[in-house]
């Protein structure tokens, strides 16, 4: 089974993000593969291990430096990498998904796994758009996945229980936390990653142009800093708390 894994390389969850004159400044941030995409890659490796054979191909769209993210997944055990190299980071999911869909058409995978969202812009839309462009089904926010008889049986956790959804393959499945526990890249894996095939391809080679008339980020601001809380002690403060809740906070 050939499994494609779509990964995003973005600022680490602990990275400090600055905003400089309305623009994001990630120059001092440490980048890593988005955690939901790590669940996707781990799931691909587990499926291949349980089936005894197969190929996991990791895909990424973005600038040259994103190659490090692809190599991290090769070190974890993915077999091959396809890097769609762009000059800058692409923040438009429509463009990203057109590029990915074009590259995926050349590969014809049996299953496409991705994180259900990236942890940077939190849009959760690229996987769905890729499925739409390929004309195949998609299930997002999946926390359990079983592959059998050309079908994917997906579990989605909802407030009151679980939804079980079955789709024919190929399909795009978006990984949620809880799907698995991603492995660490082994030291031998890190050495092997260097020898694994990794190809680079440009948007022009894929025949994909940047869409026009699209939504664009025009600015970023931090939320206003919280003012200090108030502390009340002892039963005698109850009257004051009730008064403030009514008059100041206006919640009762």
């Amino acid at each position: 089974m050939k499994i494609a894994v779509l990964i995003k390389y973005c600022p680490d969850s602990e990275a400090a993000i600055n905003v400089v004159s309305g623009k994001l400044d990630t120059s001092s941030a440490k980048f890593s593969v988005s955690p939901y995409d790590e669940y996707a890659c781990e799931e691909a490796l587990k499926i291949i291990e349980s089936q005894g054979s197969g190929e996991a191909v990791v895909f990424n769209v973005g600038p040259e430096k994103n190659g490090k993210g692809l190599r991290d997944e090769l070190a974890r055990g993915a077999d091959r990498a396809v890097h769609i190299v762009t000059e800058k980071e692409i923040t438009c999911p429509e463009f990203t998904s057109r590029l990915l869909a074009a590259a995926l058409k050349q590969e014809n995978p049996d299953l496409i796994l991705c994180g259900w969202k990236g942890i940077d812009y939190d849009l959760g839309i690229t996987g769905t758009k890729v499925a739409e462009k390929l004309g195949i089904p998609h299930v997002m926010v999946v926390s359990k996945l079983t592959i059998a008889d050309g079908k994917a049986i997906c579990t989605r956790q909802v407030d009151s229980g679980d939804e079980i959804i079955e789709v024919p393959l190929p399909a795009v499945i978006g990984a949620q936390k809880g799907l698995n526990e991603p492995r660490y890249p082994s030291l031998k894996g890190i050495m092997k990653a260097k020898k694994k095939p990794a190809s680079q391809i440009t948007p022009a080679q894929l025949g994909v142009e940047e869409p026009t008339g699209k939504a664009m980020y025009t600015g970023f601001t931090f939320p206003p800093s919280k003012s200090a809380g108030k502390k009340f002690e002892g039963p005698e403060s109850v009257v004051e708390v009730v008064r403030l809740l009514r008059e100041e906070a206006k919640v009762i």
Partner: peptide, 14 residues
Amino acid sequence: SCDNRMVREMARDF
């Protein structure tokens, strides 16, 4: 090197 960086990240996470 790139290998050294990957070892550092893996060892730190572990």
